[in-house]
Design a protein around this nucleic acid. Structure first.
Length: 282
DNA sequence: TAGAAATGTTTAG
DNA sequence: TAAACCTTTCTAT
């Protein structure tokens, strides 16, 4: 489930599991075997997320495992004895854990799993826009940096939100939900988005993505947040428009529409999201 | 059992 | 713009 919130959650989890201790590193599938052998037994200093990228920093610090889950990469993790290694298991970490109980984490299906250097990591970070979840991210300054890019672009806001050089961590779900929450037409060119609307969207994104890290999934509906004590929300109750094609809009009843945009399915409400409907323009 | 789709990115043309 | 990457899950047959 890899939008930015999932990677930050994963970084927190792996830091808790392994940081500051020696880690057994292997690649049962073989594809990462050479690098795994070089890392095996070394200390894992920390694990960090930037946008949708994960970095496992080993001692000495110039040895970094760069992971990008892509569309279907997954990490399974647990305590105690790891399960029998089967299938395409790219990377397995095993550590002693803080209390001596064994910790393990298995990576499959990732687009990227590479051993890189500090400068290579810096080059990746250079390509990324501000991340609403980075420490100090979520500040108005970071929001303004992304906002400046948006304000001078003729590209549609629905495309800009997916551009990781504009801002890092938003994917197809947050894109659709954020646009709906602010009643923004996805086709609106960036330069026509009023600055005060972008400010509100950025602030909202910080709140939504932090909630996503805590919950381990994307929940954007007020109703699901309100009802959270009655149990976990059903999938279709968690979103306003994402994957709700043909269902009535929760606000106005219009059928939710879908069409490809930047190679991905975009979902929106034609009744709520049209020119002139955005925050601050009502 | 087969097929499609999925929260993503890079590279080639 | 399309293909490739490579895995799981859901739906249809």
């Amino acid at each position: 489930m890899p939008e930015g919130h999932a990677l930050h959650r994963l970084a927190n989890q792996q830091t808790a599991q392994f940081a500051g201790r020696p880690v057994r590193v292997s690649s049962p599938q073989g594809r990462f075997a050479e690098s795994a052998a070089r890392l095996d037994g070394r200390n894992l200093l920390r694990v960090e997320a930037h946008g949708k990228h994960l970095f496992q920093v080993f001692d000495p610090r110039d040895a970094i495992v760069h992971i990008h889950l892509g569309l279907y990469g997954k990490v399974a993790a647990g305590t105690g004895a790891p399960p029998e290694a089967k299938g395409a298991l790219r990377l397995r970490l095993i550590g002693p854990g803080a209390d001596g109980e064994g910790q393990w984490a298995d990576l499959r299906g990732a687009t990227a799993c590479d051993l890189i250097t500090g400068p290579e990591r810096a080059a990746i970070l250079d390509r990324l826009g501000p991340d609403p979840l980075r420490r100090g991210g979520g500040t108005a300054v970071d929001g303004a940096i992304a906002g400046a890019r948006i304000a001078r672009s003729r590209v549609a806001i629905g495309a800009l939100l997916m551009d990781q050089t504009v801002l890092a961590g938003v994917g197809n779900v947050y894109r659709a939900e954020l646009l709906f929450r602010h009643r923004v037409d996805p086709l609106l060119p960036g330069k026509l988005l009023p600055p005060e609307v972008w400010e509100a969207m950025w602030a909202d994104l910080v709140v939504l993505m932090r909630a996503g890290v805590r919950a381990g999934r994307i929940v954007t509906t007020e109703r699901a947040h309100r009802d959270r004590r009655t149990g976990p929300p059903r999938a279709l109750d968690r979103t306003y428009v994402y994957r709700r094609t043909g269902l009535p809009c929760r606000i106005c009843g219009t059928e939710i529409a879908t069409a490809p945009m930047v190679g991905r399915n975009l979902f929106w409400c034609p009744g709520c999201q049209h020119p002139g409907a955005a925050d601050g323009l009502r």
